[in-house]
Amino acid sequence: MGLTKPNQELARDMQGLASNLKWSVELMQIAERLSLVGNEPDAQAIFKIITGSHAGEDKLAGYADEVKAGLIARVKV
């Protein structure tokens, strides 16, 4: 049985969000450049954001898989 349209949208949204979090690779490069030019406080702030993003990316990807498997469903309230 396929997913309902709302659940398809939910899975797609979650996958999109997880994909957007992959930008952390570019943020890491920016942080490294900041660190090299002596802007350590800003570099550390970016590193902190990246650390949280990685955990969020994994969670969202897992949730999207659960939606596809029918374990999570979107319902109207």
Rank of each mutant, 00 (worst) to 15 (best):
K59D: 15
L10C: 02
V67W: 01
N39D: 15
V75E: 09
S53N: 14
G56E: 11
G16P: 03
Y63D: 12
I46R: 01
D65T: 12
F47A: 13
G62H: 15
L60K: 06
G62N: 15
E66M: 15
G70P: 15
Q29G: 13
A64R: 02
A55W: 14
V37F: 05
A18E: 06
S53L: 15
K76S: 13
V77H: 12
A18C: 03
E26S: 12
L21R: 01
Q15L: 07
S35D: 10
G52F: 08
M14V: 02
M28W: 06
M1F: 05
G56Q: 14
Q29W: 00
I30T: 13
I50L: 11
Y63T: 11
A11H: 01
M14W: 12
L27W: 01
Q8G: 08
I72Y: 13
R74E: 05
E9P: 00
Q44F: 13
K22W: 13
A18D: 02
R74I: 02
I72E: 07
R12M: 06
L17G: 05
I30D: 14
V77M: 12
A73Q: 10
L60F: 14
M1L: 03
R74L: 04
V75D: 04
E9L: 05
N7Y: 01
H54K: 15
Q29F: 03
S19T: 09
T4I: 00
L3G: 01
K48F: 05
K76N: 04
V37C: 03
R33M: 11
